[in-house]
């Protein structure tokens, strides 16, 4: 399916990506090409085929409900762009 600029803008919003001006039409063209490649899969009938989400059909392994990780807040917050008093700072959300 050919993707138009409006669709690129919608998808970019869903993905929380700012995409400016002329790049929108370039992404529209590139996405259309990749989706055209994907659509070659329609050449075969897969109505009786089970979808394969995972190569070894693995299911989530469960562990004992026990505390195994220690608190490393300080170590983790060292890589954060902005923290204060142990909290991550973001622009004000609630007035």
């Amino acid at each position: 399916m050919a993707v138009d600029e409006k669709t690129v803008a919608e998808v970019a919003h869903l993905a929380r990506l700012q995409i400016d001006g002329e790049l929108v039409s370039e992404y529209a063209r590139e996405m259309s090409n990749v989706l055209a490649l994907a659509e070659t899969m329609n050449d075969i009938d897969t109505s009786d085929v089970e979808p394969m989400a995972h190569p070894t059909h693995a299911v989530q392994r469960l562990r004992d409900d026990a505390v195994t990780e220690t608190n490393q807040r300080e170590a983790f917050q060292q890589c954060a762009p902005s923290v204060e008093a142990g909290y991550y700072l973001v622009p004000q959300v609630i007035e």
């Binding site: 989706l35 075969i44 085929v49 089970e50 979808p51 394969m52 989400a53």
Partner: peptide, 14 residues
């Protein structure tokens, strides 16, 4: 149309 189809094709390839 895309993701589920691709997962089915993945099964055929496997």
């Amino acid at each position: 149309a895309y993701y589920l189809k691709a997962q089915k094709v993945r099964n055929l390839i496997s």
